[in-house]
Simulated scan of single mutants.
Amino acid sequence: MIPLFTFEVYNKEEIKAVRLEFWQKLNNRTRRLPGQKGRKKYWIFDNTGIKGLDLRFDVDRQKAIVALEINHRKEERRLQLYEKLEAAKTIFEEAFGESLIWDFAYEKATGEIVCRVYVEREGDILNKELWPEIMYFLIDKMIKMETAFLEVKDYLQSDLNE
C-alpha cells in the first residue's frame, strides 16, 4: 500500500512547483482521452453555459474532489440553482452512476461559501506516488460529472431569473 502522506519537507516555492507540475501532467493526460483527436479537454472553470455553475477539480494534502460547484455571487441565485439541482438528484446521480455528497454550504479553503455536489477520495498532491491514482480518479469522475450535468442542464436553465 502506498503511504497517504509524504514526509518530505517542502518550502513554499517547492510546493508551488509540485502543484504546478501536477496540474500540467493532468492537463497532458486529458489530451489523450478517447474522442479528443488531439484537442485538450478543459474542465477547470469550464463554461457550463450557466452563470455561477462550474465543474471543478480540487486537490490538496488530504483529498481529491470532483465537483459541480454553484458559486454565484448572489446567495439567493446560488440557493435557487442548488434547489433545482437537488430536485433532479435522482436523475443526476443515476447519470453519474453513484451517490454523491450534496452540500449547500461548502466552505472552500479561501473561506468562500459555495454549493457543491461532489465525490472525493483520499490523496495528497505532494505525494507523487499517488498521482496516477488521483489523476485516474479525477478524469474518470469528471467524465461522469459532465455526463450527469448534461442530463439536467436544460432543466437547470429553465425558468431562472438572470
Rank of each mutant, 00 (worst) to 15 (best):
Y42H: 09
L130F: 07
R39T: 08
V9D: 01
W23M: 08
L55V: 14
T48E: 00
T90I: 11
D54C: 07
K74I: 11
I2Q: 12
F45A: 06
F96L: 06
D46N: 10
R39Y: 10
D103K: 00
F149A: 04
G35P: 12
A87Y: 09
L55R: 15
R121I: 11
D54H: 11
I113G: 00
L100G: 00
K153V: 10
I143G: 01
E76W: 03
F45P: 00
L33Q: 10
I70N: 02
G49P: 06
H72V: 09
E13I: 10
K51W: 02
G52C: 05
V119T: 14
R29F: 04
R39M: 12
Y106P: 00
V66F: 04
R77I: 15
L26S: 07
E146A: 12
A148Q: 11
L81G: 01
S99Q: 14
V59L: 08
K84F: 03
I50A: 08
L85K: 06
E151F: 00
F149N: 07
E146V: 15
R39D: 05
E162M: 10
L160T: 15
L33W: 08
E13Q: 11
V66Q: 09
K153Q: 11
I134N: 02
E112T: 15
I15A: 08
W43N: 06
L160S: 10
N28A: 15
L150N: 15
W43G: 00
I2W: 05
T48H: 00
K141P: 03
A105M: 02
V119A: 01
V117I: 14
E69I: 08
K89A: 09
